[in-house]
Design a protein around this nucleic acid. Sequence first.
RNA 1: GGUCGCUUAGCUCAGCUGGUAGAGCACCACGUUCACAUCGUGGGGGUCGCAGGUUCAAGUCCUGCAGCGACCACCA
Length: 919
Amino acid sequence: MSKELATRFDPRAIEPARYRAWQEGGHFHVPASAVAEGGKEPYVIVIPPPNVTAVLHMGHGLNNTIQDVLIRWRRMQGRASLWIPGTDHAGIATQNVVERRLAAQGKHRTDLGREAFVAEVWDFVHHTGGSILEQLKAIGSSCDWERTRFTLDDDLSRAVREVFVRLYEKGLVYRGEYIINWCPRCHTALSNEEAEPTETEGRMWDLRYPLAPEACEAAATAAAMGATALSRLDDGRWTLTVSTTRPETMLGDTGVAVHPEDERYQALVGAMVELPLTGRRIPIVADAYVDPEFGSGMVKVTPAHDPNDFEIAQRTGIAVMDVMTPDGRMAENAPERFRGMERFEARAAVLAAFAELGLAAGEKVHVHAVPQCYRCHTVVEPRLSLQWFVRMKPLAEPALQASRDGTITFTPDRWKKVYEHWMENIRDWCISRQLWWGHRIPVWYCGCGEVIAVREDPTACPKCGSAALERDPDVLDTWFSSWLWPFSVLGWPEETEDLKAFYPGHTMVTAPEILFFWVARMIMAGYEFRGEAPFTQVYLHGTVRDAKGRKMSKSLGNGIDPLHVVHEFGADAMRYTLVSQCAIGTDILLDHEDVEGSFAAGRNFSNKIWNAGRFALMSLGDGPVKPLAEVRGAMELEDRWILARLEHAVAASTQDLERFRLHEVAEDLYHFFWGEICDWYLELVKARLAPGADAASREAARTTLVLALDGAFRLLHPIMPFITAELWSRLPWPEGELRPQDLIVAPWPTLDPTLGDPEAEALMGALQELIVEVRRLRKEYGIGEGVRITIHVHAPDPAVAATVAEQGAALERLARVGRVSTEPSGAGIGAHAVLKSGIELFLPLEGVIDVERERTRLAGEIAKLDAQLASTEKKLANESFVSRAPAEVVDKEREKAAGLREQAAKLGEKLDALQGVAS
RNA sequence: GGUCGCUUAGCUCAGCUGGUAGAGCACCACGUUCACAUCGUGGGGGUCGCAGGUUCAAGUCCUGCAGCGACCACCA
């Protein structure tokens, strides 16, 4: 059977079949009955649902690898480990994709009409959607596919509607006119989180507004008080100067504000301003929002286009005037010359008009964060609009408490503070979107003024009986369904068996970018609708970036396709590489221009595991091995040592997994497998496994090797499921011991006190040190592989001495030592070393190397170094060099001299040893 | 503007409760009778950003400074 194994690991030959076998074996599916009384303890993760139209990228690769590692580990620990998969309908994103396809055919969604357009989107989703879930299988994700959900599924839609109506009845959902973020391209409202502030170099313009003639006297008084905003034009009119970054909004100004306690402007409060270009007169009002220290201390107020100005209008009662259309053009109520103009054109036109009137007062460069639509990056327009909101303060209370009292933990924990800060300052959530793709708002309006929010579609108005009801045209924000995900996927609002069994869940694995969008809201929904947090651990991983630290993205073309990596190097190689870089709170860096190099660590490790496994299987042969108890007496030092090391690996990996220190698990296991099993244990037992070796010793080695590999494969399985399962399935097994059906359900190793062996570790440590030192000396003196040498060893510790004496075979095999002498080395020509274990080592060189030649060689090298040193020193002694050459050059020369001296001294010591001088 | 974080080998970063500075990649030399050249063996390379302080002991704790980054925020 071992003949079937190729010398190079070929993931394609094993991964798809393995995955199929797991799925067919039902290992991913967890029914509610599994946790029914007396059953297993559940462990539940709900997937962050990718957009239904998404294509797998490395970010998904990372996110899902981490989840799968946790799920597989808990499954092996005997938990009912459930990972619920699914996709998100992704309102704007999906609608945009379909609109673009329509645009390619020269059509707009309005050409189709609402119903046909939605049908078109469904069609698109049915044909191309969800393929990302198939791609997740290729990287080994062990989701319970029987539970796959989509946020627009009927039952999830029912949950959404139930929640909306409940919150409406509780007064937590309300409708109102507020300034919202409006995307003039997507034609929809955006939540605060969807409007991304983007650092932009813009301008701030100063504009002059003339005061009404009757305010002349007041202006003079104010000017005398030091009103810096005031100035007089050549024609004698008084003007005040205001600043703005968006001059076009001045067409909607309905007032100018000053601080109520700003004495400079007291006389002007209540006076009127003649708003240029519009022919309108607007009042000067007092409002505490104005900062007297900033600029001139006078602010133009545009209530319909700025949230703060809107609030000023609410407080002072000045008018609200919306001068823009939904697509960002100047509206009907704007002066005729600007009407219909696009907002940025209007900006230029307004500025030109001000200049013409002599009312432009200058401009300056102004860097500020301009909000952009997170989907299309169009500059967002703050706009007055009638929208639906959720009152968040009451919902935030328990969710904030949960973080404060440690019910919910964050990893890395610095996000705890960020979360709490956001929750403390939470603002109401605008949930209506002017889209067609999504959950339609379950609200009907009656001509009589009644607003009806209900669970079942109404046929008549409950108040007046009219059947002429009009449904709200808008849909809900995508996150209004995702925030319910942890319980809606379990059948809520029905009180299902699944809900009882699997709610609350345990770990949420996601990126910090959606901490507010999603994680915080899920926690709030969990408390509001289930009375309990949906999970207790939030693990926030880093972002996948390219070699230059840029986020991987389609537009930059710097992405790496996970499926390509799986195809070339295997899912295990990809998973290992990602996990090994996954230090808490750090980003993952991969070079899209060197994919092979980026995943070399994982690929090489896979190959190493494969070859070690191959060799072990060949050496072990087909028969079962003896149980540990039967071979204990015949065990050698290396057997006891490797099992003790396995115990360390078990302890470390388990602890690290519990604390999400995944990269340390990867590192520990890499070192255990490669650095200990391969580099030492396999090398040491080769002879004992060979045919013709002592039977008892061979059996002890066979059993130990099987136990060590079994343990290593189990520990590695969550990270590298395929290769470990493949090799593990071929391992011989101890006679009479029950073998789990598949590695995926083999129990996670627990500590076995009978395997711990500090003595074996100490002795093995001494032996390793000795071997390494002998190898080093061999290299140093150029003693070829073929030359057997004698070493003299004196160990003060009798146990170490005995070990060295017993381990002649190991020294022979690993350091080509022909003879170990315990006699005092005496004086002689050779190399001497004292090791940390206390071993004094002497390696005679007479007869081993051509001492005379080596002496000559060393002397020659020393002479060469001396010559170089002399020339350097001469240079440094030259005063004009030292004083005239640049300081760095002189320093470099000094460093060089020091280096040469050091090298010469080292070689001198070596030479002394060869002279036979006792040191 | 506020908050938080980072600064350790050429590169990317570990270093969790203070106790002789680590890994991977890259580099240099040697090696193909050995399961693996996707390998083996050995090696070079770091005043742990700077300045103070606490301590028997500081990369690790405290203070200040500098540089970089992230998040939040309405400054017209």
